[in-house]
Amino acid sequence: MNTYRNLSIRQKQVVWAWGFLALPILFYVVIRFYPTANAIVLSFQSWNLLGPREWVGLENYEKLWNDPVFWKVFKNTFVYLILGTPISLVLSFVIAYHLDKTRLLHGTLRALYFLPFLTSTVAMAWVWRWFYQPVPIGLFNNFLASMGISQISFLNSTTNALPSILIPAIWAGLGFQIIIFMAGLRAIPTSYYEAARIDGVSSWTILSEITLPLLKPTIVFLVVFSSIGFLRIFDQVFNMTTNNPGGPLDSTKPLVLMIYQTAFSSFDMGYAAAQTVVLFAILLVVSLLQLRILRDKP
């Protein structure tokens, strides 16, 4: 206790600061960093959850490299990202931009757009799954059939299934992005717009010269956030294809679903850990690239 009493005020402040910081740091070390490190170690081992872990060197990564399903899944994951992120960003910006100008029922509309974000993904995925069914239970196909148009195989098709799953995923995330965009739009000082209007510039110029550049931090945040979301897509795919997870013929399977199956239905924990390390690397590289490209130029 004496040592503490002899400290200067500044030193005491440091001790207290570290005391408070120690708690979250400890928490993160125990529930984040330790499992992460453990997963990396596990990716060089073979383990079926029951027996002891055995070192196998790079075998899991070799298997991954030679696994055709992995490359298919790898491609699917990027298709989710490349289609999902731009579409959802453009949609949410357009909606937010116009919603910002609407006065009539503004609150109600905003709530309606935000509602899907609050809904449980599982419930939503199942409702959409039923929408997509063939006649006699599918909403969309019943409508098509009543119009005399032939049915569309939404989910039982190697080409249609992935977009069909992506649509509800985009819709579900829209509400959050709209709210962030609207906050960004509100943060732009109105004096800029007033000055532009006095100068008589077109609304297109206002959008491209004032609104978009000033929204850049918002856009960077949303691009990174939604990219990570689409790279980690799982719930929608799993729930909409539980009979044939990631199917048909692996055409909708994202990396996370492959990891889940390898770990918890094949009990090949080492191989699953290797896939997880690859996913981690992809997320890291994609996020760093985006931050670098979208960052303000000096």
């Binding site: 190697t158 044939n244 199917g247 048909p248 013929l249 239905s265 094949s266």
Partner: peptide
């Protein structure tokens, strides 16, 4: 050896015929 993976083999065998 792995029931769900072996089931998937059968699912895919029929899918390849009907879809491809």
């Amino acid at each position: 050896a792995d029931e769900s993976a072996q089931r998937q083999v059968m699912v895919d065998a029929v899918s390849r015929m009907s879809l491809e």
